[in-house]
Amino acid sequence: MSGFYAAPSVLGCIRIEPGDYVACRIAHWRLMFQEPEALQVGPEIPENAVWKLTPTDLN
């Protein structure tokens, strides 16, 4: 999906800031910066994976 800014978070992992939605922090395995070769193949999800991390910033 396009239209968002993603960068390393000071708390670890990746912080995503969509222009029209709430910012969140996610694990590295959830984000790709290049289009995958096979669009029908999903990411490898680690066992006991955390999908959304909190807090999102230091405030």
Rank of each mutant, 00 (worst) to 15 (best):
M1S: 10
S2F: 01
G3V: 03
G3N: 01
F4Y: 12
A6H: 05
A6I: 09
A6L: 04
A7G: 01
P8N: 04
P8M: 03
S9C: 12
S9G: 07
S9H: 07
V10E: 13
V10M: 06
V10Y: 02
L11H: 04
L11D: 05
G12P: 03
G12D: 07
G12L: 02
C13W: 10
C13S: 15
C13Y: 14
I14A: 04
I14N: 06
I14G: 04
R15H: 07
R15V: 13
R15L: 13
I16V: 15
I16G: 02
I16K: 00
E17G: 01
E17S: 08
G19Q: 07
G19E: 03
G19A: 10
G19D: 09
D20W: 05
D20L: 00
Y21R: 07
Y21D: 09
Y21N: 09
Y21E: 09
C24E: 13
R25A: 01
I26E: 06
I26L: 11
A27H: 01
H28M: 04
H28K: 15
H28N: 15
W29Q: 05
W29N: 03
R30E: 05
L31W: 14
L31E: 06
L31H: 12
M32E: 15
F33W: 09
F33V: 14
Q34M: 13
Q34A: 15
Q34V: 13
P36M: 07
P36H: 08
E37Y: 04
E37D: 12
L39P: 02
L39D: 02
Q40L: 11
V41R: 14
V41M: 09
V41P: 00
G42F: 07
P43T: 06
E44Y: 05
E44H: 00
E44S: 11
E44K: 11
E47L: 13
E47H: 10
N48Y: 14
N48A: 14
W51H: 12
K52A: 06
K52N: 07
L53W: 00
L53G: 06
P55Y: 03
P55S: 02
P55Q: 04
T56Q: 11
T56R: 14
L58A: 15
L58H: 08
N59D: 13
N59Q: 10
